[in-house]
Amino acid sequence: MALIKYTEDHEYISVENGVGTIGITDYAQGKLGDVTFVELPKIGEKVKQGQPIAVVESVKAASDIYSPVSGEVVEINEILNDKPELINQEPEAGAWIYKLTLSNTAELDKLMDQDAYLAYASAEG
């Protein structure tokens, strides 16, 4: 069973066997509206927790995706190049954005669990 955590910037990370799968939450895609483009990271790119690593765009907005944890990108979801709308359809499943190997699993402790995140998102309105 994968461990799922959330950030205040509305990214999720699902961790299994030291590999994290990252995307944006259903709440986030609803706020953003119709997604038109996803700028994916490069495989092999090293990132620190909280650094911008990808961009999700709608017609009138561009949102940076901040990496929930530090690590090295090992896989990117190239389906999003042709089907950015997948982010709207299944954000927390088929529309993951990238996978990375975690360099510091302790960073996960700073993130929210599902209950805390849902409370956070509903408070934001």
């Binding site: 119709d34 038109t36 765009e57 017609v59 950015p84």
Partner: peptide, 9 residues
Amino acid sequence: RLDETRAAR
């Protein structure tokens, strides 16, 4: 109204 999402995708 014009479909701006389609234009951008």
